[in-house]
Structure formats: C-alpha cells, structure tokens
Write a protein that binds this DNA or RNA. Structure first.
Length: 576
RNA sequence: GGUCCCGUAGUUAAAUGGAUAUAACGGAUCCCUCCUAAGGAUCAGAUGCAGGUUCGAUUCCUGCCGGGAUCACCA
C-alpha cells in the first residue's frame, strides 16, 4: 500500500500509453520519473516531475507539457480532485477526500502491519556483532550490533526469511592469550601466585577471573599443572562462558541471534581445507609474495613467500595470504570457509555488518564470496562508523589495558535500552556519532526517544480517558470524515511510511525510521496543542470523544509509531 | 602513500537527482483554570573550494582543501 510506488507505475503506464497514441515522445530517462509528497505550504498532495523529464525530448517548455499532461490525467484518474502546476513544471496532484478515506480504512485494517512492502521475498543471512569471545561487549560494539539487528528486523518485516548470525572466532592467538589469562587466574586462586602484570595482550579483566572461579568451583577440570595439556578443554569452557556473558549483554540490548557458527567447528569439519581446495580447482591459489604496505610507520616488513588467494582478480588491492609462516591457516582462510559455509546453505543474499575498523576487509571477503559462489551469491557489507563517547562534556577514550572502558552492561544500567537503541540508530551509519551520556539520559523533549514515546503515551491517555481500548474498532462511516488541513498533513505523512520502510530496507539505512517517527510525532504534538487554544480541536470533552474522526487519526498514528518502534526495538509505554 | 567514510545554521544532525534545503540544541519572545508542559507557537541563522554531467546537484563525476578510520603471519 505504497501510494508513491503505485502512482509511479500508474503514471508511467499513462505516459507510455500517450506515446502509443503518438501524443508525446518519451526518452530513456523515464526512469527518473518520481512521485513524492508535495512540500508543505504548496497546494496538492503528491507531486510528479513528469513534465520536467519529458520537456527536452518533446522540445517544449516543461510548463506546456505539464498543461498537456494535466488535462489528460484529470480525465484518466477520477480520484484526482485537482492538479496544480508549479514552477518549473511540477504536477502537484490533489486527491479527493474519498481517496484518503479509503487510505485510512486500509491502514486501520492493516494495523501494525501497515508499511510492509510486498516486493520479491528473499532469504537473507545477516551476520553481525561477531565480537571475539574474550570479554563482555563494550560500547564500541553497540552501534554495529543494533544496526545489524534492525536491518534484519526490516527484512523480516518485509516478509523475507532472515537468519541472524554470529561468527565466533574461538581460535587463534588472541584466544590462546585469553585462555592463558584464565589459566593464570586459576593459578592465582589455587596457588596464590599473582596474575602477571605488565604482560602484553593478557586479559586482566574481571570476566576472566569469574570464569576461573567458576571452573574451580564446579571442578570442571581437575589438574592444572600443565597448561598445554589442558589447553583444549580450558579453551572450550572459557569460550563457552565468555559467550554466555556476551549473550546476556546482547539480551540487555534486546538482541538475539538465531545461529552461532564456531571457527573451531569449521576446522573440525575440514571445511577450511575443502574451501582452499575449491579455490585451487579454480586456479585461484598460488605461492607468492605480496608487496609491503606503503604507509610510513611500517618498518618491520619482511618479504615472505606464502600461499595466496588471487583476490585481485575480483577487485581487491592485493592478493591475500591463506597460510601463516608456520603453515597454520590465517584468519582470512577461516573466514573464507565460513562464507563458503553460508553459500552452501543457499541464502539469496548475505549481509555482513562490520565496524569501521574492518572497512579494509570488505574487498577481500567480497572477492572470496564471488570466487566461491561463481558470482551467484550476493554479499553486501554494511559499515557502521565510530561512536564518539562524550562524558561530562569531554570526549571519553576507552583503553582496554587500563580497564578503562564502558561495557554494554554499564551503558544499559546508566542510560537504559530505549535511549541507547534510538540514539545509536538516529544517525546515518556512514557518519560518526556523538554519544553524549548526559543528553541521552535527559528526560525532556530534547531527547527524541521520549518525544516519540510521549506521542504514543498521549494517544493512549486519550483512549484511557474515554474508556476505550486502542485496538477496539470504531464504528464510523468514514465518508463523513471531513479532513481539515492539519489532519491532511498528518495523513500525508502517514502515507509516506511504506516508502520510508522501503528505502530504509533497500539501502540498509535504518536511521530513516527514527527520523520519520520524530517528524510524525512532531505533527501529532502540534495537532494536540491546537486543542489548547481552540476547544473544537480537543479529542475529548466530558469524558466523551468530541469526534470519531479524530480518534481514527490517533489510531492510525499509534499503529505507525508502534510498528516503527517495534522495528527499531524501542518500547512504547502506555503511560509516562 | 593506497583504500573507505565524512565536510550542510554558533553546535549536532536530516534530505532514494527536485521546488522556498528539514529539524533539534544554543540565542530572542510568547502559551499551563483546559485530553500528560517529557508539549506547543513566533523570530534570527547553513550546503568547504574549483570545475564537469543534468531541464535541475547537498546528492553523481574529476581535482583540491580539511576531519576520521584502515594497511600485517590480529581477529
């Protein structure tokens, strides 16, 4: 029920029809045809740029073409009440009230499903978070996590099959250091031997000590004399515990993954060898040297011959190593196997949500997926830029070594889930985001979260005061609804919701949703305040509704707010 | 140096190639006997620079100037 795409098609057909009757010439730029809301302060509901596009090929002034189109459009579409031509040649179409009556009726029937788009359904795999299981999630992980979650929600809302997935890097150097840290903590407890300080890359955090305690208390391992001997088991238990903690963190953000894939599992199933073999058969693997990085700080570069993947054939800047010097697989080799695993699971589209620090990784993994799937599986990587934390008016730098970092748990305790999600989503993910603790916790209109929630709460309060349930049907002959200019503006905004969803999901830009919800709320609050000066604009008098038409508007707003907030995972309290 | 992202009112942002560039904060002035003032109304204020494509550019392309991220046998 996207009136913009509907009329885009209708008017396109209409123009093509005119061409068939040789009344107009069309050119290949007909794809630029666009329908959008008429700007406020101008007459009309929706606007079309047809005349501007057709002007050149027909060698006529846009306004003349507009006049011509206007006369034909008015005849063809009975729902058009009037068409205004505006400089430089826009067609501003005004609908009859009947049209909006039907629109409102449809919206009331669809309820919170309104906005869902019905284009082709696909199966998606959305990989996000995938933080190393070496400690709790911190603020840095938040933005990408929420972004991934909402991209997935959008796809689900539009009727696609979606798997929310987490790739667990439970092998490699970092994990060894992490496991060793757990070991040192155990030794510390059992033998009173202090945890080594000032050793690089160990994990001194509380979470590690907690895991150590748990292992001892539950007697999960009996002997701790030799680290190497118990390494496998210790690693497995530590990762499992660590991942549990991460899941708790994610949960407090309102995020739940459907599926976890472990790097170690790929090793056990021989999937890395298989993947490399697959590439070898395609002649995409060779022994060779890669060029040194050119940046100035790199001084310790040593040239080596190693097993490389020809990612340059697929647009990467250089070929990428699959094996380390000791012949063990690189992280990239494992990730290729992981993506091959995804390809084998026959998703139509893969989505990876990455942090800004992984931008440089995109070309090579794209290359990998193209090569492994013969360009059949689409991979789309979405990057979320950094979050600048501001505390007490100053930038706050996190440092792992000092233990000076803010965890998700801290954040949620201090700020709360709703503001965190809303604010993290409210900017385009291509832009760095200022996250000011003070502003985010403020419970005023300056805080957009509460502004939108307040809109919903106010609507609930109206229905509470007339002892009606928000979902109760209103028996009313909608044809009697005489729409005033304020209501018309709101209805027009409501009509834009499916378009907002469509663009957000196609471009994977969820920030459009909070922005839209804020704008809709703003229209509502203005509408509400009209009742302060003029009683005829009030929704209730003497605990009875002043008019059923106003209730219908409120209901429609509430559905859109509710469904939008559901999508971004923010609550809509009935009362504030 | 290569790659990627960004440059819009004093500040923080918004704008699938559209019209008079949209908001919030901050500044100035108003509105609570009344459905929740966690709200509303009014005013002042902006597209880094130089080209190009286009009927039309904040948006696309090229160059420059600024800010951030990144470069590996780390994940």
């Amino acid at each position: 029920m996207n009136i913009f795409s509907i009329y885009l098609e209708k008017i396109k057909e209409f123009i093509i029809d005119l061409e068939k009757h040789e009344q107009i010439k069309i050119s290949d730029n007909l794809n630029n045809l666009a329908i959008e809301l008429t700007p406020k302060d101008l007459q009309g509901d929706i606007s079309c740029n047809a005349a501007l596009i057709l002007s050149k090929t027909n060698n006529k002034k846009p306004k003349d073409i507009a006049e011509f189109l206007k006369t034909h459009l008015i005849i063809k579409f009975s729902e058009f009440k009037n068409i205004f031509i505006a400089e430089p040649g826009f067609l501003n179409i005004e609908f009859k009230d009947d049209f909006w009556h039907k629109f409102l009726t449809d919206l009331l029937n669809l309820k919170e499903k309104y906005g869902s788009n019905s284009y082709k359904k696909n199966s998606y795999n959305v990989e996000f978070v995938s933080a190393n299981p070496t400690g709790p999630l911190h603020v840095g992980h938040c933005r990408g996590s929420i972004l991934g979650d909402v991209i997935a929600n959008l796809l689900i809302f539009n009727g696609n099959a979606v798997t929310k997935e987490y790739y667990v890097n439970d092998l490699g150097k970092q994990i060894k250091k992490f496991t060793l840290s757990v070991y040192y903590r155990i030794i510390e407890i059992l033998h009173n031997k202090e945890f080594p300080k000032n050793v690089d890359d160990l994990y001194p955090g509380e979470n590690v000590a907690d895991i150590a305690k748990k292992i001892i208390d539950k007697k999960l391992i009996s002997e701790f004399n030799n680290f190497d001997k118990i390494y496998e088991k210790l690693r497995e238990i530590s990762i499992k515990e660590s991942l549990e903690l991460i899941k708790v963190n994610l949960n407090s953000l309102g995020i739940q993954h459907d599926h976890f894939v472990f790097e170690s599992q790929l090793y056990k199933n021989n999937e890395i060898q298989d993947t490399v073999e697959k590439l070898k058969k395609k002649d995409l693997i060779y022994y060779g040297k890669i060029a040194a990085p050119k940046y100035k700080e790199e001084k310790n570069w040593k040239e080596r011959k190693q097993l490389l993947f020809k990612s340059t054939l697929y647009g990467d800047d250089k070929d990428r190593p699959l094996q380390k010097n000791d012949t063990s697989w690189t992280y990239f080799a494992g990730d290729l196997a992981y993506h091959n695993n995804k390809i084998d699971r026959k998703f139509d589209i893969l989505i990876n949500v990455l942090g800004a620090d992984h931008t440089g990784y995109i070309k090579r993994i794209n290359a990998g997926v193209e090569a492994l799937s013969n360009k059949k599986t689409k991979l789309s990587c979405k990057v979320s830029q950094l979050v600048k934390l501001i505390k007490d008016g100053k930038p706050f730098k996190m440092s792992k070594r000092k233990g000076d970092y803010i965890t998700v748990e801290d954040l949620i305790n201090e700020v709360g889930r709703d503001p965190v999600r809303f604010i993290m989503l409210s900017r385009s993910n291509d832009v760095e985001l200022d996250f000011d603790f003070k502003k985010v916790t403020e419970k005023t209109k300056d805080n957009p979260v509460y502004y939108v929630q307040y809109c919903y709460a106010r609507i609930c309060s109206v229905f509470r005061n007339i002892n009606k349930d928000l979902n109760e049907e209103i028996n009313f002959d909608i044809k009697k609804f005489h729409i005033n200019s304020y209501e018309r503006q709101i209805i027009k905004k409501l009509s834009e919701w499916p378009k907002c969803i469509s663009i957000s999901s196609q471009r994977m830009e969820p920030h459009r949703i909070p922005v839209y919800l804020y704008e809709l709320s703003s229209l509502f609050h203005s509408y509400w305040n009209l009742g302060k000066d003029d009683f005829s604009f009030r929704f209730i008098s003497d605990n009875k509704p002043t008019s059923l038409t106003k209730l219908i508007i409120l209901k429609c707003i509430s559905y859109v707010i509710k469904s939008g907030m559901n999508l971004i995972g923010v609550n809509t309290p009935n009362k504030m």
